[in-house]
């Protein structure tokens, strides 16, 4: 293990994050805080409680998870795309660094950032709505799992992308809609049967359901299924990355 390289890349990526703190932390926190204000404080009291949870509190896990998800994807994709774009990737490719080390450092840094972001948002939410976390360890586990899984997806995106548009379009056109329709704002039990069935094809439903269960003890789908789906995504992304590295796809000519 080239631990020097691992540490160097990780720190390099974290330094990049600190330079752009306003964009990468303050703006998602601010945007989500606005949701808490609108739905938690202003509209919330007029919306009936869902499964015994006040609406303002109900949406907190979903909103946090959405931010963690999108930030993981965009952070990790940018981290590996940028050196490809500028050409500095030559150094990484010519260094005595294994592919495992490259993924661990890039995706690890991206996951770290979004976990920190998730925790900041949790603290912010506590200002606006009454929070309750019934299973804190599970909460952390789901948070970390989601951050890692979607940092890997971001890594794949960053290697696949051919331009900055693709880098931005994928989160915008795929991740965000799936997220909003993934039960962040409602329980899918509230949907008519047809839409409920369709929703079950949305992977984000399982992530949010599991995460919300760790807060309030209620889930749209069974905990075991949520967990299993999380692990399936992880496995799929790991497999794709293994293939990328075996073939040198978009990295080597």
């Amino acid at each position: 293990m080239n631990r020097h390289a691992l540490a160097a890349i990780y720190r390099f990526e974290m330094a990049r994050w600190r330079r752009t703190l306003a964009q990468s932390v303050i703006s998602p926190v601010l945007a989500t805080s606005l949701y808490f204000v609108v739905f938690g404080s202003a509209l919330g009291p007029r919306i009936p409680v869902i499964d015994g949870v006040a609406y303002g509190a109900f949406i907190v896990p979903g909103l946090i998870l959405l931010s963690v998800l999108t930030q993981s994807v965009s952070n990790a994709s940018f981290g590996i795309y940028f050196p490809r774009f500028t050409g500095t990737i030559y150094e990484l490719l010519s260094a005595p660094v294994s592919y495992l080390e490259i993924v661990l450092s890039y995706a690890g840094a991206a996951a770290t950032k979004s976990i920190i972001l998730g925790l900041i948002m949790l603290a912010t939410a506590a200002f606006f709505v009454p929070l309750r976390i019934e299973h804190p360890l599970w909460m952390l586990a789901f948070l970390v799992l989601t951050a890692v899984t979607f940092s890997l997806l971001g890594f794949i995106l960053g290697i696949w992308a051919d331009g900055f548009e693709q880098l931005q379009l994928v989160p915008l056109l795929i991740i965000t809609p799936l997220g909003f329709l993934g039960g962040a704002f409602y329980s899918i039990d509230m949907l008519p049967p047809l839409w409920r069935g369709i929703s079950l094809a949305n992977p984000v439903v399982y992530l949010i359901s599991g995460f919300r269960w760790s807060f309030y003890g209620q889930a749209d789908v069974a905990l075991a299924i949520s967990l299993a789906m999380n692990l399936v995504f992880l496995a799929v992304f790991v497999a794709i990355i293994a293939w990328i590295f075996r073939t040198g796809y978009r990295l080597k000519t």
Partner: peptide, 29 residues
């Protein structure tokens, strides 16, 4: 091996010191 590539490809926002120190560690030192 140390490689000086033909293309001028460098980081933009890092300091000179950091970018050179980074290379050393990337190569396992």
């Amino acid at each position: 091996i140390g490689l000086v590539p033909q293309e001028l490809t460098t980081d933009a926002f890092e300091s000179v010191w950091n970018t050179v120190a980074f290379s050393r560690r990337l190569f396992g030192k």
